[in-house]
């Protein structure tokens, strides 16, 4: 595990392991505050409002106030819910969301676990989110919660398929499932990112439309995976109140909320790793030190978090049948064609 600076400093012992496991958590907590503020402010600007203005300078302390409010709320367990499952569901959901951070490389010198099947692992642990949602929805003993949970599960399972094909195409192109290896293959500036077909001679231009298509498919699918607009029918307020977390309040709701936000960062990070060179600097070797790399990585991923927020406040919601139409009849065939093109390019390259 030479790719981890914490082990170089402290050594591979229990303290080192705990620090490595806790570092992404620190990041997630800070990131969630930033993302909440972003959600509030960006939605306000899109709707020509000012947003929160009274807590701190221009309202920058608003997320802290919100978190304090959530922490102070009474921990309510409604009378007719299934208590054990109701209380466990938020933890399963957050565990699944946080587990993905185990393989996300923030820099060439920091990745919590450099396993060589990182991409496959991220894809697998997203299953825990489905179980957590279904568990919470079922245990709430509320028809809106159950409907929301069913919709979420059906949607997440359907959209996994085009996403899997997009991931598979990049894995074919890189010849590896190791995140660090995939990123290393995109060295040398913007033109070598997998969004532009990876490294290769000028002959690669014909494959760029296909990698672009896969990029869009992965992005659209990831919106559905995180239940964001336009795919937020599991929590469509006008139909089913708030979906699977209708009955939750206080800290347990906060855990669902944190899980959703950390999932948003995970999918943005995966897009960044697969298509936008991960921690590689866009200028080749210029500004490509370990600290710069983490800055590049976080800013690229945060850009996609911003796009998700932006879409949420500008697009309407799809209907259930439209949702299924998009995944099975549009995204899946396009993904297959693009996959074969990319696989062909990977073969002749």
């Amino acid at each position: 595990m030479e790719q981890n600076f914490v082990y170089d400093l402290i050594g591979e012992n229990l303290i080192g392991y705990v620090i490595v496991a806790a570092m992404p958590l620190m990041f997630v907590l800070v990131y969630a505050l930033v993302a909440i503020l972003g959600e509030l402010k960006i939605s306000a600007w899109i709707q020509e409002r000012l947003g929160p203005m009274r807590t701190g300078w221009k309202g920058v302390l608003q997320p802290i106030a919100e978190v304090v409010k959530l922490l102070q709320k009474e921990d309510i367990t409604p009378a007719n819910v299934n208590k054990p499952l109701f209380n466990v569901a938020p933890f399963i959901m957050f565990t699944g969301a946080y587990a993905a951070y185990a393989v996300i490389p923030f820099s060439s010198v920091f990745v919590p676990s450099g396993i060589n099947i990182g991409l496959f692992y991220v894809f697998a642990v997203s299953a825990f989110a489905i179980i957590g949602i279904v568990m919470g929805g079922w245990a709430s003993n509320n028809k809106y919660s159950l409907l929301g949970a069913m919709r979420a599960a059906a949607q997440m399972i359907s959209y996994e398929i085009p996403i899997a094909i997009a991931i598979l195409a990049v894995a074919t192109l890189a010849g590896s499932l190791d995140m660090q290896e995939i990123i290393k293959q995109q060295a040398g500036g913007i033109w070598n990112w997998f969004l532009f077909g990876g490294t290769g001679s000028i002959a690669k231009v014909w494959v760029i439309p296909f990698t672009f298509a896969l990029f869009l498919i992965y992005f659209i699918g990831s919106l559905a995976e995180t239940n964001r607009v336009p795919f937020d029918i599991p929590e469509g307020e006008s139909e089913i109140v708030a979906g699977y977390h209708t009955e939750y309040s206080g800290m347990k709701f906060a855990m669902f909320f944190f899980a959703e936000y950390s999932n948003m960062f995970v999918v943005s990070a995966i897009i960044t790793i697969l298509f936008l060179g991960g921690w590689q600097s866009p200028f080749g070797d210029f500004m490509n030190g370990p600290v710069w790399q983490s800055i590049w990585f976080i800013s690229k991923a945060m850009f996609f978090v911003f796009v998700q927020i932006w879409l949420r406040w500008t697009l309407p919601r799809l209907r259930v049948d439209q949702l299924m139409y998009v995944t099975w009849k549009v995204m899946l065939p396009v993904a297959f064609v693009a996959f074969f093109a990319v696989a062909f390019w990977a073969m002749i390259k």
């Binding site: 496959f120 697998a124 642990v125 299953a127 825990f128 069913m150």
Partner: peptide
């Protein structure tokens, strides 16, 4: 194991 059993079979059973 997680992919197939948790993501597939368990979701099916729970459904």
């Amino acid at each position: 194991q997680i992919m197939v059993y948790v993501g597939g079979i368990l979701v099916l059973i729970i459904f």
